[in-house]
Amino acid sequence: MTNEKNIAIEAKNVNVYYGTKHVLKDINIAIEKNSVVAFIGPSGCGKSTFIRCFNRMNDFIESFRKEGDIIINNKEIYDRSIQVEELRKEVGMVFQKPNPFPKTIFENVVYGLRIQGENNKKTLRETAEKCLRDAALWDEVKDDLNKSALELSGGQQQRLCIARTLAVKPSIILMDEPASALDPISTSKIEDLITVLKKDYTIVIVTHNMQQAARVSDKTAFFYLGDMVEFEKTQTLFTNPQKELTQNYITGRFG
């Protein structure tokens, strides 16, 4: 299976079940390289489930079952030949709540390299600095690299988690409501970061916050009760939605 040239992630007729519960219904989507795509929709609509398919974090859920194809780098990622660890290096993830390891800032950033067996001090140092810079955190922590990551503020922790993800050199970064636990200032820092990162990465972001989707994304997909109702250029979706459901949601009539 192959992706078209400029497509990073392609889903074809994807259905997901938890046990007998049908949580994603026949989803088709193609996410372009170096773009930011936002998934929006009310709680329980399946947007988090969907994003977690892209790096197979759903594998830990016993009753999880998927039909259809998800193609990244010309391969169906649930194929037997896929090593899930390799997939997760290619498709990084930033989680809803900042989840730094209870280690130093430095060790957090280089964790992904260490588990790949990289122990060269110089390489680790350089990667740490580069990734912290890319995550716009370097200036704040450069003197405290050996301090516990748990001492950072929530916003800093989240940027550290982004830096940690960058260190593994993914091509795609998934963000599952990355700013929902943060204050407005930290949130805007993360949003700025996203627009910078898109030069080098494909970013898929799940968000509750429609303004956020409007601010950061190129395209937006609206999910409702397991259906992908609409997938459009962000501007189009917010100003001129094709479906009534979308219209109702973005005007705040439910959700």
């Binding site: 390799e86 993830m93 989680f95 964790y111 588990i115 790949q116 940690r164």
Partner: peptide, 8 residues
């Protein structure tokens, strides 16, 4: 999750 997400 964080560690798995980094490919561990």
């Amino acid at each position: 999750e964080a560690a798995y997400g980094l490919g561990a």
